[in-house]
Nucleic acid binder design. Structure first.
Lengths: 164, 164
DNA sequence: CCTTTACCTCAAGTGAACTTGAGGTCGTAG
DNA sequence: CTACGACCTCAAGTTCACTTGAGGTAAAGG
């Protein structure tokens, strides 16, 4: 019925379509992230759905998901495909991460905004400025920064060393 | 009037307070991102405001600003300090970047949301599924992915290879 | 037949941001 | 006096995600 065969793609075509260099596709394949079959001439051929995989890879990367984690998802595919269920689970997980990231960034933006607004980076003018070492009070201990700006907020609030 | 001298910090204290390993502070200093003076014993001492610098570094990193760019800002400091004006400029710049990132992530989240909702990752069920190669129509050319999900969106819209 | 083009493999190199390790110096506590 | 912890330097190693390069094949066009 359908004369459109939607044939498989060469590595060059994939690269063009997916917007990544050929070398990257080689790399992804070596890392087990995408698959191909070979022609007589030993050239790679990609099922069109591999394009979708590349899209997922790049998308996930944009959210900060490392390749190892993406592979973990892909490795869950019994038949080499992601079942809707698996996808939903991963998507939910990544969406959560997304939410976290968005929240972090929004907090950061707010902080920057108020910093700009109040000129608080200038020791001379910031109403929050306070020469005492308030944070010293709560001692040492494990710290976290990236993905958790709580302490930044605290410093901003205490106004410690408000100048740079 | 103030008996609290708020004395300078050793590298260990800085590390504890800033939540980064000592080696990282060494590294930042080697990279010209922070400064210290030395005691007789050749030990580093940090002015408290260096703590603020570290906070800025980590914050900026969370937004994806590379160290080189942070240094570029810091290098703008004639007196070794950031003037409110310079800070405002950088903060505005980084805030723009933040906005971009937030927008990208929000877009991603929406896409993931609708994917989950419609089960579109399943070739069999997605209402968007379309076996034709719609995207093939617009040929090769430069591509971009990270920080620009336009093409992902397009693929999602066309539903190409909607299964994985 | 010859050349070009697109592909192949495998090893090594890249850059960012750190970390690890070896070997050495202070200054205080016991 | 000696041990200890905190600090020092400098070189080299690590991880991630690729990229580059050398050397080779296969099919199509002139």
């Amino acid at each position: 019925m359908s004369s459109k065969v939607a044939k498989d793609l060469s590595v060059g075509e994939m690269a063009a379509r997916a917007g990544v260099p050929v070398s990257t596709l080689h790399y992804y394949e070596a890392e087990g992230l995408i698959r191909s079959w070979r022609t007589n001439a030993n050239h790679r051929r990609y099922d069109r759905r591999e394009l979708r995989r590349v899209a997922i890879i790049r998308t996930a990367q944009a959210v900060g998901v490392p390749l190892s984690e993406i592979r973990a998802l892909f490795d869950n595919l019994p038949g080499g495909r992601i079942k809707a269920e698996d996808w939903a689970r991963a998507a939910t997980l990544w969406a959560d991460r997304l939410d976290d990231q968005i929240e972090t960034l929004l907090r950061l933006r707010d902080q920057m905004g108020s910093c700009i607004g109040c000129g608080c980076l200038s020791m001379d003018h910031c109403p929050l400025y306070n020469p005492d070492d308030r944070m010293g009070a709560h001692g040492a201990g494990p710290r976290r920064w990236v993905g958790d700006t709580a302490e930044v907020a605290e410093m901003d609030a205490s106004g410690e060393a408000a100048d740079v």
